[in-house]
Structures are given as structure tokens and as C-alpha cells.
Design a protein around this nucleic acid. Structure first.
Lengths: 188, 188
DNA sequence: ATAAATAGATACTAACCCGTATTTTTTAAC
DNA sequence: GTTAAAAAATACGGGTTAGTATCTATTTAT
């Protein structure tokens, strides 16, 4: 886990392909023998980072908030606000770790893409579930298509991460969040 | 331009970092001497690809459609539909070339980020302009914030490109487009 | 025709890459 | 205390990388 943590930090900042195993060894003070005792190769370590580090963090920040009771509009907005503005691990200049992996590995590394797709599907299902609950409670219009809304919200998130990288400033997050709030209110 | 074209095709599919100069030389049948006569180094070629190839193609598909007269809702939706569903150069499994570059290069290669930011700003300004015209013509509500909407639309685009990569299917584009249409109608 | 500038070809370097083979140290079991 | 397994250290191999040095060929200008 120590190796994975440090490796993740390097990869999050530099990218997977450009982070060499020697880089990881240098910063972790781990020798090559130890590294290859724990991981068969670099890709196995990459997959381990996603499963052991990314998934738990993702579940805490992206999934769990959606399971709380209340107004979906508020729940979804608050989740997004927390992810973009409060989360101290995710820096605006380095974007979303999951999106970085996706962009870099798809479509060539199918192992990565499959695991990342699982992440994405979990989020999607949680959003759909949250909206369906809101519809039953009369908080969301009955004609709202849950899946469409989920996909729309997710795409907005990944896109604003990209714009944040370009602008290297959270100010674009705030602009996005304002419009997200307006959009969510149209679902009521 | 021949080198740039072939190099772009390789980079679009494989990524910038993982496309070696030797790869480019092999597919272009150009020798190393010729290559380094025209470009000082790899990054200069990368910047040239963005300026000489990406920018013109971007202007044609992303900017020009926004300059036509008419209903912004229809104009913006049609533009997005054409980009996602009709453009034969942009494949769903390889995503958006500009987004790929951004994801891969930011924040370390400031030359790339700066040029890509110019692209992004041009698109943003064109969308803002389109919406402002719509407001003046009474086609868009007066209280709509043009910049917020522009950022929201752009983030949706870049995000859905990411999801398309993950799913490797245009079906997710269609789901997104439906909700985009609904969203745009709320601006009227 | 000659000189100069442009363009292209070839061979090479020095650094870096991932992964392996081999050896050494540490830990645990009996 | 001996043995065996687990864990870690080291050195190296085979291949790739971006970029350079050097040489040759082709235009262009005078």
C-alpha cells in the first residue's frame, strides 16, 4: 500500500506512461527486487492503484453522498460542490485521476478500461437511483429520464475537470456549478 | 504538412507521449534528417499539429456553425450532433484530439496548454456570442447567463467524449444529446 | 558555371525503459 | 538451532527513446 500510495501521487501528477518504475523506486526508496516481488509488472500495479486506492476514495466522495435521504437536487449539487471545491486530494491542475487514466489508457489497455468502466457504472447507477427516489417522492418531475440526467451530469463533471486543467483555476468550477444548480432546478 | 497529417493520425490513436518519432518516420517514409530539418524537436512538431491541423478543423466544426443566423437552441444542438455523430475524423474510441492533448500535456507542457487554451477560448466566445444574439432576438430568456451556459455546454462535450472512450460506443452520445436538447429548451 | 543555400540520408550516442536473473537478508516453523 | 519460505537487494540485458553529427544531394542565385 505504501508503494501504491506514492506511485499514485506520481502518476496523478505526471501521468501513467511518463511515470517510470525507476521514478517510483526512487521516491519510495523501494528496490526493484522488492517491487517486482509484489507486482508482476507495471500494469498490474496500475490496476492495483485503481482497485485499492481509487475505488475506495471514489466510493466515499462520489457514491455515498448519493445514498443520503432528501432532495436529489440538493444532494447532487452538494456532492459536486464537495468534489470540485472541497476535496483536497483532487487538484484542479491535475484533473480527475479516473479521467486521466481513461484518457491515457483507452482504448489500448482493456484491463484498465474495464475497471474504470466499473467505476463509471457505479456512479451512474447511484445517480439514477437517487433521481428515481426523488421522482417517487414527488421532488423530481415524473417525465424526467433518470439515465439521461445521470449521463448528462457525469459528462459535465468530466468535462469541467478538463477545463480546469486548461485554465488552471477553480474559478471555472464556480461558473460550472452555478449553471449546474440552474439545470438541476429545471428537473423539479 | 504531410508529416503533420500522418503524425496527427498516429498521435490521435496512440497518444502523444507513446508515439515515437521513429514511429512517425516509419509511417511517413521520411528520414530523420528530413524530420529534424523541418522541426527543431518533437514538441515543436506537436505545437505545429495543433496550429496547422487542429485549429482549422476545429474552426470549421466548432466555430463556424455558431455564426449562422437562427435559433441558438437549434444551432448549438445541431453543431453538437454533427460533431458527435457525423464527423468522420473524430472516432468515439479515440475521443477528442484537443481533449487528449490537454489531458496528456497539462500542466507540464505550458506551450501546449497555452495553444489549447486559445482553442477553448475561441469556442467559448463563439457560444457566448451565439447566445447573446439569441437573447437580443428574444429567443433566449433574458436572465440566462451566457458565460455560464457556454462553460456548461463545453464541459458536457468534453465529458461525453470521455464517456464515449470508456463505453466505446456512440450510444452514450445519443443519451447525452437527448438531455442536451432538453437542457437547451429550458433556456428559451 | 559556380557558389550558396536548402533539403535529405545515415550512423550514431547517451540516456532511459521494463523486466529478469541471481544473490542476500529477514522471518517463521518445527 | 536448523530449515524453508518470504522478502528484499543488486546487477544487468535487450530494446527504445529523442536528438546530433556528418555527409550527400538537390535547388537556386549570380
Amino acid at each position: 500500500m505504501g508503494i501504491l500510495q506514492k506511485a499514485f501521487e506520481l502518476i496523478y501528477v505526471k501521468g501513467y506512461q511518463t511515470t517510470s518504475i525507476d521514478d517510483i523506486l526512487a521516491t519510495t526508496q523501494v528496490t526493484k527486487g522488492a517491487f517486482y516481488y509484489h507486482f508482476r509488472n507495471k500494469d498490474e500495479m496500475g490496476i492495483a492503484i485503481i482497485n485499492e486506492l481509487l475505488k475506495p476514495g471514489f466510493a466515499a466522495a462520489f457514491i455515498e453522498p448519493l445514498h443520503t435521504e432528501g432532495d436529489p437536487v440538493k444532494i447532487i449539487y452538494d456532492m459536486m460542490y464537495a468534489i470540485l471545491m472541497k476535496n483536497e486530494l483532487l487538484k484542479v491542475e491535475y484533473g480527475c485521476p479516473a479521467a486521466n487514466f481513461t484518457q491515457e489508457m483507452a482504448p489500448w489497455h482493456s484491463d484498465f478500461t474495464r475497471v474504470l468502466n466499473e467505476l463509471s457504472q457505479e456512479w451512474k447507477n447511484a445517480i439514477i437511483h437517487c433521481i428515481r427516489k426523488g421522482k417517487k417522492a414527488g421532488r423530481i418531475r415524473a417525465d424526467v429520464k433518470s439515465e439521461q440526467v445521470a449521463v448528462f451530469i457525469m459528462s459535465g463533471y468530466w468535462g469541467i475537470r478538463n477545463m480546469g486543467k486548461l485554465n488552471n483555476s477553480r474559478s471555472v468550477y464556480l461558473i460550472y456549478l452555478k449553471q449546474l444548480k440552474d439545470y438541476l432546478h429545471t428537473l423539479q
